[in-house]
Design a protein around this nucleic acid. Structure first.
Lengths: 296, 296
DNA sequence: GTGAAAGCGCTAACAG
DNA sequence: CTGTTAGCGCTTTCAC
């Protein structure tokens, strides 16, 4: 039985691919459908390539020493999940790139950087969702988005705007609300959005993820406003919860598992071939799924 | 910057703790609340001790070479999740123990083996759940259990039986059903259990996890049998879904996060102190939570 | 107390 | 093509 430690030292390869997970205070991280799926996909590919996954829980303190992991040779490549487009994060990744360490971002683009990225077409997914609402006769569609530090939030906004534009509906900034992708943050918007629904100022809501959609739906229900009577609702992610809730939640399916798998494949292919040069980015489709909350 | 690979070789310690995940075909593993929480807990403790987590996806083929991971020195200790009490698995773990490799099981006991284990008190949790139903006036309580290869299934059965016994209610084998912890398997029992509910042979159901409870609830609803009218329902796990579904699902809270954390702490404490001898097992409390499906 | 040297177990390069 | 040897970069021991 060969000793992996000695092998690793001799060939200067740890055989590990690092997965950097965001620090989410007070939230038990993996509970979110999102990370779980991506991680499973990464695991599938890494396994196939004979790599092991090293899980790295990002601490709030040590934000910027991603490069350390490479210098110490603990990992040969890494996948960064849940990165936000803030200066600190950008700088840390720029540094990784400068030092020539291979890494890949999943579900988050940093425009103008040339970082290897795997993303889903959230603009198109959102456009489909909003078009569906419009085709169903809705014309005052509120949008409950997530924080703009995530490219996916920005993409969904542009998809929302595109769908309105295509249908000749004006874009009203006062119909855009911002939560933080938690159920609670969706619930918290129930008062304001509920007011608009009652007054007739809103007849549908598009939420940037299922958790916020579900939170909003529950919050509105407590105010006596039911989906399926007063307003249509579409979420995003096709999470387990979207099928459990009643009425079932229309949503946008995102191939998270495949995104994780593709990220690992791209990274390990490059690693193997040593093709430091040409990299293609991955963009996977997101697809609208009609369920009960938008078809009544 | 010291090279971790060289350090590891020199001091014969990888600094990694392996987490062995079960192979679950056709199920994107982490989506289950259960594993996600445990893994987060392990991560929290490992981080604190300066260890990294190496994720190991168990393949259906290579069942028994857990020991290999230690021989190759890839990991210093490991935590086994989702083990089943089948001969193959038992043998693999016995081997680990014989060879003196430190490992810990979470949420699964192997009686009479002396394996280090962290478990929750599922017998007590189940007893509380069933007592609650009985106190609510139910007297014909069906039990939808999981496979008996899991000690947690067996514990829940004994808790169910204990509660009946304490209340002088006879145990009827024909009221016990077996699923595989998936939502689908819960749904599949709807026909048989629905029949019993209609005939008055059952006025409450205790399910061994939330997913089966939710599947059953949805299946019964399609048959026109509503929780809150015809039968009471209690699930198990306190998963996100239990709060999302309507009516909200009474359930049993299990401290999965803490179980993962404790397992890692026990393992790493022993590892540090080198106290090969005395090991205490961890047993954490499970607690019943009343919600709408059992209080109407 | 400080400093030099001998492994750790393998890989890769090189000579035969 | 096979066998030998010199590192890989650190830790630890042992001598000074």
């Amino acid at each position: 039985v060969p000793n992996a430690l000695a092998q690793q030292l001799a060939r200067k390869k740890s055989g590990n691919i690092g997965v950097i997970l965001p620090f989410v205070p007070k939230v038990h991280l993996f509970s979110t459908y999102y990370f779980s799926e991506i991680l499973s996909g990464i695991g599938e590919a890494a396994n196939r390539f004979g790599y092991n996954l090293l899980l790295i829980f990002r601490e709030p303190s040590d934000a910027k020493d991603y490069a350390m992991l490479f210098r110490t040779q603990k990992i040969d490549a890494c996948i960064v999940l849940g990165a936000r487009d803030v200066p600190e994060e950008r700088a840390a990744l720029e540094q990784l790139k400068e030092e020539g360490y291979p890494f890949c971002l999943v579900n988050q683009r940093f425009d103008g950087t040339g970082f290897m990225t795997v993303d889903a077409d959230h603009a198109e997914g959102s456009r489909q969702a909003v078009r569906h609402l419009i085709e169903g006769g809705r014309c005052s569609i509120a949008f409950l988005n997530g924080p703009p530090e995530y490219s996916s939030s920005r993409d969904r906004l542009s998809g929302y705007q595109a769908a309105l534009r295509e249908s000749g509906i004006g874009y009203l900034e006062e119909l855009v609300f911002v939560g933080n992708y938690s159920r609670k943050s969706g619930c918290e918007q129930a008062a304001r959005i509920g007011e608009l629904i009652r007054s007739g100022g809103v007849d549908a809501v598009f939420a940037a993820n299922d958790r916020m959609a579900i939170g909003l739906m529950q919050g509105l229900k407590e105010l006596g406003i039911e989906t399926g009577e007063r307003y249509a609702l579409v979420g995003y992610d096709n999470s387990d919860g979207s099928r459990i809730i009643s009425p079932t939640l229309s949503t946008v399916e995102v191939p998270f598992f495949e995104m994780g798998r593709l990220a690992a494949e791209m990274l390990l292919n490059e690693e193997r071939k040593g093709s430091g040069g040409h990299r293609e980015d991955g963009l996977l489709p997101a697809r609208f799924l009609a369920r009960e909350t938008s078809t009544f």
